[in-house]
Simulated scan of single mutants.
Amino acid sequence: MDCYLVMSCLSRQQIPPIPKVLASLLHRNHCTKNNTYKLYSSNVVCLAKDLNVTVRNGPVIKNPDDKSPPHFTWQTPFGLFTQTNNITTFHFDFGKYIFRGRIGPPVPWGPNGEGPEGWIDKLPFIPLHWFVFSLRSPVIQYELLNVQTGHRIERTNGVVHMEKNWGNSFPKGWIWSQGVSSHDNISFALSGGLVSLGEITTTQFLIGYRNLAKNLNLNYRPGNAKFSATHNGCVGWFKIKVYGLLHEIHLSASADLSTFSDCLYGPEITGFRQACIESYDAIINITVFKREFLSLKKIDSQIIKLSALEFGGTYTCDKRCKKGES
């Protein structure tokens, strides 16, 4: 039996070399309940001229606003991705596999279209932007067909995390992690690394944590928090402390090295090349403290299993997926 995890659709429209448009399906073979296995990717690519993006069945003539619900179609010779009335539909042919399904309404990061960056995403000089469209959309239905064997998997449950990036290029080194606890309405997402502004390079992060049962809706970014982070891509762990005005978050993430993929494709200004590794078997430990006068009071502690953990660029082990200069 095969176990399948995630699909990503990426597109760039700058100068050569190719590929400029890429879709990846990450999967694990012979997945069992108590064991973990390495991630593999199946990829399909095409030229930028073969990508067609429409908004409300017409050409794209302006950037979207923050508040309006998305209504667009992303189409290539190998696949289709649509967003209409808060329902996502997709159908992709990866050669050996066909993956299609429908996803329900989003659970947004914040009100009025706010994403992890908050007001920062309005700054024109930021080299890369990160937006989370949905923290935990419900799966309506999905189907995955192994064309070679005829084996078919059909399901009607699960949760889906959806996000996007845009800008000039990814950082020289970065970490991304995300996870949900379906039964407890707990979720988190974080991204960060080496951010270059002109001649200055700093380490910055964006992080959000949700625990509805404890009324915790925490969002931190440069400007409202300080960060202290360490990482080791050769061991497969990452730790960060977030110092906010009213709260602190201590988060550690780790995954067995055997569960990580080989280098996966990541975007550069010239196109896509192998730039990062991922595991979807990470164990996340999150502790939240509330500031009380001169002390800290622990108000939440959670373990979120089967989370995503990605090391990219120079943050991979021995820089084996180091990005070229953009």
Rank of each mutant, 00 (worst) to 15 (best):
K172I: 02
W174V: 03
I175M: 14
W176R: 10
G179N: 08
G179Q: 11
V180L: 14
S181E: 12
S181V: 02
D184S: 13
N185R: 09
S187K: 07
F188M: 07
A189D: 13
A189C: 09
L190N: 10
L190P: 03
S191G: 09
G193W: 02
G193H: 04
S196D: 06
E199D: 10
T202I: 13
Q204Y: 05
Q204M: 10
Q204H: 05
G208M: 06
R210N: 14
N211L: 03
N211A: 08
N211P: 03
L216R: 11
N219M: 05
P222S: 02
P222N: 03
F227L: 00
S228M: 05
A229T: 06
A229L: 05
T230Q: 15
G236M: 01
W237Y: 13
W237R: 13
W237E: 15
F238Q: 13
K241V: 08
K241T: 11
K241D: 14
L246K: 15
L246M: 13
I249E: 03
H250C: 08
L251E: 12
A253W: 06
A253T: 05
A253L: 12
S254G: 10
A255H: 03
D256I: 01
T259H: 09
F260V: 08
F260P: 08
S261L: 09
S261H: 09
D262S: 11
D262I: 01
Y265M: 11
Y265L: 09
P267S: 11
P267C: 07
E268V: 03
I269R: 14
I269A: 15
I269E: 15
G271H: 07
R273F: 02
R273A: 09
C276H: 11
C276Y: 12
I277A: 10
E278L: 01
S279P: 05
Y280R: 15
D281K: 10
I283P: 04
I283C: 12
I283S: 15
N285M: 08
I286V: 15
R291I: 08
E292L: 09
E292P: 00
E292V: 09
F293S: 12
L294E: 12
L294W: 10
S295M: 12
K297Y: 01
K297Q: 14
K298D: 02
I299S: 13
I299R: 13
S301V: 01
Q302D: 12
I303M: 15
I304T: 10
I304R: 11
K305I: 03
K305E: 14
L306I: 04
F311K: 00
G312S: 01
